[in-house]
Design a protein around this nucleic acid. Sequence first.
DNA 1: GTTTGTGAAACGATTCACAGCT
DNA 2: AGCTGTGAATCGTTTCACAAAC
Lengths: 206, 206
Amino acid sequence: MRKVADSTVRRLSLYLRYLEEFEHRGHATVSSDALATRGGTTSAQVRKDLSFFGSFGKRGLGYPVGDLARRLREILGLTRRYQLAVVGAGKIGGALVQYRGFRLRGFDIVAIFDSDPAKIGRTFDGLEVRDVAELESVLAEQPVDMGVIVVPGEQAQVIADRLVAAGVKAILNFAPAQLAVPDEVSLKNVNLALELEALSFTLANR
Amino acid sequence: MRKVADSTVRRLSLYLRYLEEFEHRGHATVSSDALATRGGTTSAQVRKDLSFFGSFGKRGLGYPVGDLARRLREILGLTRRYQLAVVGAGKIGGALVQYRGFRLRGFDIVAIFDSDPAKIGRTFDGLEVRDVAELESVLAEQPVDMGVIVVPGEQAQVIADRLVAAGVKAILNFAPAQLAVPDEVSLKNVNLALELEALSFTLANR
DNA sequence: GTTTGTGAAACGATTCACAGCT
DNA sequence: AGCTGTGAATCGTTTCACAAAC
C-alpha cells in the first residue's frame, strides 16, 4: 500500500465518528461538504482523503453513510478487537484501565503491570496489577496486540524493548522519552507536558 | 511574529529537554548535530528551527548549552508559571491533578470542577473538587491561564464556552469533540482513541 | 443542478549544500 | 578544520478547478 500520511489517518478516524453521528440521525447519504463542515476541514480534503482508498461516492449524490462507515472501519482495521497491556499502574495507568471509551471502540485492556509492591495485587475494574517481572510470562500466555507505556521516562526504553521482545506490534507511549523501536513496530507518543508547552508558546507570542 | 509551525514548536520543547540533559552532564556547548542525534532529527532541521528565532550559535563551536536553554524557555514562554483549572474530576481529571510532572515544568493546577455531587467536596492532593456551577465565581476570584477539559464529549463545548467567557486564553481538550473557540484562544486536543485507531491502521495495513 | 474524483497549482516543511565565521 | 546560518532545491500536503457522473 502507498504511504498514507499520518494526518490523513487521523482525519479518517474523525470522518468515521461523524458518519456514525449522521447514521444515528438517520441520514442515508452525506456529501463531502457536509463531512467537511462537521470536521472543520474542506470538501476537497475529504474527497482527496477518501479517494486514496477508492471511489465510494456517487456524483451528484454524495456518499452512502453506512457503507462508507463500514469501509472506513475496514481501512482503519477496526473490524476486529485489540488486546492491550498497560505497563505502569500509577494515576494515569489506572485511569486508562477504568476508562470505558477504549472498550467501546474495540480496545480491551487485558493486563496491567507495575514494579511497586504496594500496587501489585491491587485491582482496577476487576483487573489485577501483576508484577512487571512477570511481563514475559503473562504475555506468553495471554498475547496482546498493543502495549501502553505509562512508566517514568527513565524506565520507558527498557519496557519498550521487553514489550517488543514479547511480540507487541504497536506501542502507545505516555512517558516523556524518545523511544527506539524496530521498523515493524508502530509507535505513537502522547506527551502532555509538550502540549502544555505548545499552549504556553502561543500565550507568550500573541 | 511570523507564523511558527506547530511541528517546530514541538521540536523546540524537545530541544529544551535535551539541553537540560546536556547541561546536567556538564557540557558547555552542543552542536546542532549532537542535538539532532539525540532527538532523531537532522542537524539542518535543528539549525533551521533555531534560526527562526535568532542566531544563537558560534560557527565552528556550536551552541552554548545554558544560554540556548534560557532562550528557548523565553521563546516557549516558560519563564513564568501558569495557573490551570481542570473541569471534570473523573479518572483522568483526578490523575492529572495528582501528576507531579506538570508542577515540575511550571503548570499549577489550582482548581478542579465536577457536576457529580458524589465527587464535589472530595479532594485530590489537597485540592477540593468544586461544583462546576461555581466555575465562573471561582475563576473570578482565582483567575487561571489555561483550562483542561476532561468531561464527556457532549458537555465539552458548553464547558469550553464558559471557560472562554471566564477569560481563559488556552484550552487543553481531552474530550472526543471538535471544539469551536474564538481565534484568540489557543486549543490543543488530546484524543486517545484517535491515537489507538492510528496504531490499528498501521497494524491492519502492514 | 449537484457532487464526486482527480490532475494541476499553490503552499508549506524539510533537506541540501555551501559561503562565512571562529 | 569545524560548525553555523541560510538561500535554493526537494519533497509532501493541501487547495483549486473542472470534466465526468448522476
